[in-house]
Computed example of a mutant assay.
Amino acid sequence: MAPVVVAAPEIQHREPGMSSRHRKGKSSKPARFGQFDRSFVLRVLRNYLFSALLLLVLLLGFTYLLFRYQFETEAPDQTRQTAEALASDVTSIMINKGGPVASRTVYPILERNYDRLGYDIAILPSNATVESIEKRFDFTPKGIPSQWPEAGRYKEASVTLSAQSFCLQCHVDAGIGDPLGTVVVRNYFASYLEKWREDATLSAIAGMANIIISTVIIFCVMRALMEPVLRLRAMVSRWAKGILPMSERIEVKSDDEFGELAHDLNLTLDRIFGILEDLRGNVARQKAIDSEVGREIARLSRMAEQLRRDAQRSEAPGETSREPMLQDLANSIRRLDDLCNNLRDVLSSHEGLMKRLE
C-alpha cells in the first residue's frame, strides 16, 4: 500500500494594518475650511445690502408710478388753478392806470416765477387790447408769447380775461364784458417729472446713507454676537485638521445658547473618548486571543507534520488508513488560520479608527 502523504497546511500571517480595505491605497485630501466671518457674516451683509437696494429701487419705482398717476389725475386741476391764479395776477396789474406800461416789466417776472413752479405760461392780448394800447400808450402790447416746447405730453388750461369798468380807461376800444386777452398755462410731464427726479435724488441719497450706516452697525453687532461661534468654529477646525489634540476642551464662558452648545460639544467629545477607551480595551483583548490562537495553530501544524511522518513510517499493510483523519485535521487548521487572519483584519481596522479619532 502506498504511504499516506498529508501536507501540513501553509499558514499565511498577515501584517497588522494591511486589511483589504487599507490595501487599496485610497487616500483622502484634508477638508478645506474657510473663515467663518467670510462665509456667514459677510454673506448676511451681502444679502442685506441686496435686499435694501432692491427695496430702495422698488420704492423709487413706486413713487415714479405714483407721479405718473398724479399727473393724469391731479395735474389738470392744478393747471386750471394755476391759470386762474395767473389771470388774477394780470387783473391786479390792469387795475392801475399805468398797468399796460408796468406789464412790460412785470410779465417777465411772472414768467420766471411760474417757470420755477414748473409751468409754461402765455398771455395773449386780444385785438381790442392791442388797438386800445396802441392808441392810448403808443406801443404794441405783446404780453407773453406762446413759446411752447416742441414735443412732450402736457395738461393745458386757459382763462379769458373780460373787460370790466375799471379797464375801460385804458382799453378805449373795448366794452364791458369784451375779451381783453387769454392766459394759457401748460404743465408739461417733463417739468412734472423733474420734481420727481429731485425728490428721488434726495430719497436715494438718504436711503443709501441709511443703508451704509445700518450695514456698519449690523456688521459690528454681528461680530460681537458671533464671537462665541467663531471660537467654537476655530476649535472644531483645529480638531478636524489634527492641529489640536482631541483631549482639549472648549472653555464655556456663558450660559446662553452658545454656552450650551460648547457644553454639549464637550460632552460629545467625552463620550467619544469613552468609546475609544472601550475600543482600545477590546482591541487589547482581541490581540491576546489572536496571539493565543496563533500559538495553537502553530502547535497543531507541528503535530500534523509529526503525524504525517509517523504514518509514513509505521503504517502496515492491511491497516486502516489514517489519511481521512489527517485530512480533517489539516482542514481544521486551515479554517483556524482563516479565522485568525479575519481577526487580524478586524484588529487592523480598529487600530486605524482609533488613530483617526485621536
Rank of each mutant, 00 (worst) to 15 (best):
A284W: 05
E227H: 12
E248H: 10
H13P: 00
S20H: 08
N96W: 00
M354T: 15
R356C: 03
A122G: 07
I109F: 14
S237Q: 14
L45W: 11
E194R: 12
A157Y: 05
P30S: 13
L55G: 14
F137N: 13
E315F: 00
A2T: 00
S51V: 12
E358W: 03
T160L: 04
S132P: 09
I123Y: 11
C220D: 02
E156Q: 12
F40M: 06
M354F: 11
T268Q: 08
N47M: 02
A240L: 06
T268S: 09
R43Y: 08
P149V: 09
D290N: 10
D120L: 01
T73I: 03
F33T: 04
A85K: 04
L58T: 04
E358Q: 07
F219H: 08
V229W: 04
R302I: 10
S92N: 11
Q286D: 09
K135W: 09
Y114W: 03
A298R: 11
F36H: 09
T73S: 11
F36V: 09
I243L: 11
P245L: 08
F189Q: 14
C167G: 14
V41R: 15
V4Y: 10
N113M: 07
A31K: 01
V346I: 13
L180R: 09
L49E: 04
S214L: 12
C220P: 03
R344F: 05
E156F: 02
I243M: 07
V6E: 13
R23I: 07
S291F: 15
M226Y: 08
V216K: 13
V90L: 10
T140I: 12
G17T: 02
K142I: 08
L58H: 01
D345V: 12
K195N: 13
R285T: 05
P9Q: 06
R223Y: 06
R356K: 02
D338A: 10
E227A: 14
R112F: 04
P76S: 04
I217H: 01
F36G: 09
S214G: 03
